[in-house]
Nucleic acid binder design. Sequence first.
RNA 1: GCUCGAAUGGUGAAAUGGUAGACACUGGGGACUUAAAAUCCCCUGGCCAUUGCGGCCGUGCGGGUUCGAGUCCCGCUUCGAGCACCA
Length: 920
Amino acid sequence: MEYNHKEIESRWQQYWKDREIYKVDIDSSRPKFYVLDMFPYPSGAGLHVGHPLGYIASDIYARYKRLQGFNVLHPMGYDAYGLPAEQYAIQTGQHPEKTTSVNIARYRSQLDKIGFCYDWSREVRTCDPGFYKWTQWAFQQMFNSYYDTEAGKAMPMSRLVAHLEANGTEGLNAASGKEVEFTAGEWNVMTPKEQSDALMNYRIAYLGHTMVNWCPKLGTVLANDEVSEGLSIRGGYPVEQKLMYQWCLRVSAYAERLLHGLDSIDWTDSLKETQRNWIGRSEGAEMRFGIDGSDIELEIFTTRADTIFGVTFMVLAPESAYVSLVTKPECKEAVEAYLNEVKHKTERERMIDKKVTGVFTGAYAINPLTGKKIPVWVSDYVLAGYGTGAIMAVPAHDSRDYAFAKKFDLPIVPLIEGADVSEQSFDAKSGTMINSEGPELNLNGMEVKDAIAATKKFIAEKGIGKVKVNYRLRDAIFSRQRYWGEPFPVYYKDGIPMMLPEDNLPLLLPEIDQYLPTENGEPPLGRAKNWTTPDGCPLELNTMPGFAGSSAYYLRYMDPHNSDALVGEDANKYWRDVDLYIGGTEHATGHLIYSRFWNKFLFDIGKVVCDEPFRKLINQGMIQGRSNFVYRIKDSNTFVSAGLKDRYDVTPIHVDVNIVSNDVLDTEAFRNWRPEFNTAEFILEDGKYVCGWAVEKMSKSMFNVVNPDDIVDRYGADTLRLYEMFLGPLEQSKPWDTNGIDGVNRFLKKLWKLYAGGVSDEPAQAAPLKAIHTLIKKVTADIENFSYNTSVAAFMICVNELTSSKCNSREVLEPLAVVLAPFAPHIAEELWHSMLGHDTTVCDANWPVHDEAHLVEQEVTYPVSFNGKARFNLTVPAAMQKDDVIAAAMAHDGAAKWLEGKEVVKTIFVPGKIVNIVVK
RNA sequence: GCUCGAAUGGUGAAAUGGUAGACACUGGGGACUUAAAAUCCCCUGGCCAUUGCGGCCGUGCGGGUUCGAGUCCCGCUUCGAGCACCA
């Protein structure tokens, strides 16, 4: 009987499906374990062989935990809203929903072939109204909340309104967009519109005028994580800065908690570091500088309060409100010309030409410590969105200020002893202060660190400024001028944004005739008919961004059919949080920040029980493509094998990796591949055409896409699963190379033979027992460490041992089938059922525990070293004690030449490990 | 520029401070076959010695700690990732 993967795999997949083997429910008698994959965006190209890597890894863990007795939640769904489906809709007129469901069906059939243990009854799709109802609901909760900085959590807006009614902004502790002050009296006489605008300054979901990343080509704004180096991540189109009135989420209010939360979760250091960088906490001081001849005060932020005696000019961001306030009439023309010039540059242009530009405002600020007058400039190297949009420039100790000072010939005053600032600035935060003595404060002789503290203390006491923490993390822009996304549950009454009643959720995405902006530039929803409330108020035209639907999907899996809540209390209390989350690093600063924020918000309002959503997170590496090349001799249709190509003038051409096997080209298939190769001639080496290769991104244009369906068809899902794990460490990126897959397939055939000869009930010999218990020990430890590649090797070693010792004892074959089940579930079921005669599924077996007794050695072989260099092996009874082992080593034949004429200085003995004799 | 990670055969890679290269792939040789496929066995880091069982060198580079370092420490080089006019 041969190993027939097709028959076995389809039969077991059907069996699991028919009996709902992987369906899970709350079971308070068993501990829960939640294993989650980052759900995919179902693209039109389908899955390639790289996509399932993480899914296989999590599936192994889920199955392993189940065998250990945990009640394992292991769901899957689809991140169904996204730009590609909409771009396709624009081109073809096809409704994105149609494209999306076709793609989902394709994904599902591909996933099903690999034999995952997902509970598909819990599937979610972000574009399903039953799902996005809760995305809209969460948005409304954020609209109705503010972040109380004293309580350190979100609170209902009603509480804030009550405070404003009673006290105005006096004593208000709320995270806000800008600092404003008004009295209760002023609040109470505001119009409803004015009140609405004032409250937007505090709401967690708010409408705000913000500088956004506008992508004209895509016709929409993008979040910071959707832009890289001034280009859109999707499509690579230029992005420019534009001031727009947009929905935003006050993620910045959570910066400190997002930072602190990292300490309590089990993520890799590099991922935590990435998030820390993205949050960008920086501790410094906010200081006020008076403007000469006016009562305006410039507020600036600095981390180097100690350098205040070296401030030789001030710089404002071009967008700063201070610019128009301080500019002197005689400089107005020049300043406006400069602002105009800056405005027309895109972010990318600003980045590419790092030319130092700027203009003098004519105004002078007064250094509060020295009383000296210092000029105020405008330059685009200062960012409006960070700190206060204004800085004090210390050219001696900041490279950007230095470049500016050199360009405009401004003075440079060194403040640190020994710092040579003739060629460049001295940016290091260390050294002894000089030139830093004023009438009230003297920093001379202090270390930089102490000087910073002393200055902060001084300015706080004098009321010149205060200690302040700034974050790089910005609020998330939450509006997209697109069709294929969640509609906002918002309408406008007399220009005031209002939330739809919760009973009216979900607000369904309307049908439109074309997926383009309207003629007058409104988003696509502007085309929807009757897009109003019943009493005629217009509904919001923007839709939510991609990350909206993915920010709480893990909660929905806990209770996917609940129509009264995102997640019911019982389900949430049982499943709590994700124990293991596996996905790619590309979400480090997007999804993984937003969902932590979203979760913390839901935690604050008492809707979920855990503050952090993902307890442990593993980033699987990317699978790159391995492209193959043929070499065409110039101006001919003759192709030369890779080993001979240097003798000719050749052009490398990508060739479809699916007609290449172990880098050998199927020349017939190549001729049939494309018409122009019909008459191709080949110059072979050793009778074969050998292709060249290179590692590149897996993509259609490189002809290096490998479809898992083809691998499953040829070798089976179990081979695919094992091979993907065998490829290398899970977290490492690596190219897909089909060359090694035969080895794994051979292993399964060998395994099959081991059982196919019949299973005996005789007890096993010592060697097979040792092999199986070594395996159990190794695989258990490896799964816990996600070291799956070494597990696969361990299986091979064990099966080789059992084959060569001709072991067919049930005592050994039974646990082998169980430990294999997470990796190769189909064959494990077949062995368990048909070969071992069980009538239950292997999924209900118990994970075996290794028995040390079988691993104990009767004899131990020590490498005997002289001065650390191993010279011979010594085999002695395991029980032999130190002195006897050393005596035996010295008496051994091999020892004579190393001991001859030398004196033994020292002996080192590590039980079970080594004998080392140090001689002189 | 700042932060994090990595570097081991022809290839993918193993190795709680203890015989470096497990396990595979590729390549070479052999068995079985009329033949091929499949299967099985042997060799496969380099150099030297190979009718003797052996010797020397080897984990990016330079130092250090240790009886002993791929592993720990210090200083580099190269590659990858994240952040980046963030004051």
